[in-house]
Design a protein around this nucleic acid. Structure first.
Lengths: 118, 118
DNA sequence: CTGGATCCGATTTGATACTG
DNA sequence: CAGTATCAAATCGGATCCAG
């Protein structure tokens, strides 16, 4: 196995590296929401439904730190902050689309779909 | 968010469903190893290097249970067990290739590569 | 409204020992 | 050789409180 370090973490392969950037429960759903337009913090929060405050803020911070999204804060009271995709974020959308298609395929094969929805 | 249940777990989207099948630290590396040939348990273990005995056996069991790999056990002493990809597993390889390519892209952008290798 | 900090339970992973 | 079982460590996620 080729291995390498990044930020003191040991990775075994490129896939793992990519998944650490845009994987986890919430990063792709967040990026996906931003694919077509700029959104405010509260808007994302409402749209994502079950995400907690902590998760949304930490994930946004990481995505910004690694250049997938842009954070624009307006100096007004109350605060207004808008999030949008960067070029890197837009490239990620292509990957997410591939995974979505594959996920839908698998769901069909596993018989998960309308019956399972609530 | 569209949501649905599978095996008593709540999923938020198709990507998450796919990642639960072939995600995690080891499933893709295992599938990847099997892309070109049948391999024995000990061979996989050796090739994957840092994987523990426990992780390899549990991941193999799950991949088999969900139809990504085939397990062929020969009734000999000492035991001989061979693992190979199923059609579903071969389809997964296509996805993994896409993620690998993307991961390599990101690694280049982040300056991770030869310098970080050991 | 946006976001940081803390505490704590749940889940994941690793180390180690045991078995046919 | 190819597993299984148990326990401990590390990580992740959620609830809650505080702040500009």
């Amino acid at each position: 196995m080729p291995e390498f370090l990044y930020n003191d973490k040991l990775y075994y392969n490129p896939v793992e590296f990519a998944m650490d950037r845009i994987g986890g429960t919430w990063k792709m759903p967040i990026l996906w929401r931003l694919r077509s337009r700029v959104m405010r913090y509260g808007e994302l929060k409402k749209d994502l439904g079950r995400i907690t405050h902590k998760m949304l803020s930490t994930q946004l911070k990481q995505l910004e730190a690694e250049g997938f999204i842009h954070r624009e804060a307006y100096p007004v009271i109350p605060p207004k902050v808008e999030y949008s995709l960067t070029d890197r974020g837009r490239r990620a959308i292509e990957i997410i689309e591939g995974l979505r298609t594959y996920g839908l395929e698998l769901m069909a094969e596993f018989g998960v779909g309308e019956e399972g929805r609530r």
